[in-house]
């Protein structure tokens, strides 16, 4: 089994992960997200219709 490497040499200069804060959705980005919601709903409906009719 693989060894636990926690005791190996430390590289303190390895950059830290970027800080994550919630993005503020404004302007066109907000519109894009609503477009994405509509797109997802429409495509799921179409795929369901397609499968029901034997397209796939």
């Amino acid at each position: 089994m693989k060894k636990d490497t926690l005791n190996l040499v430390t590289r303190s200069d390895y950059p830290a992960p970027v800080e994550l804060t919630r993005a503020q959705l404004r302007g066109w980005v907000r519109v894009v997200f609503w477009g994405l919601r509509v797109y997802i709903v429409v495509m799921i409906a179409l795929v369901a219709i397609g499968f029901a009719r034997g397209h796939a």
Partner: peptide
Amino acid sequence: KHVAYTQFIDFEEDVKIRARDQARVV
């Protein structure tokens, strides 16, 4: 939210577990 999101992250542990690979590249 930021603190809540990062509370489980142990950066030092993250660094240590890939120290060997980093050392090879450097």
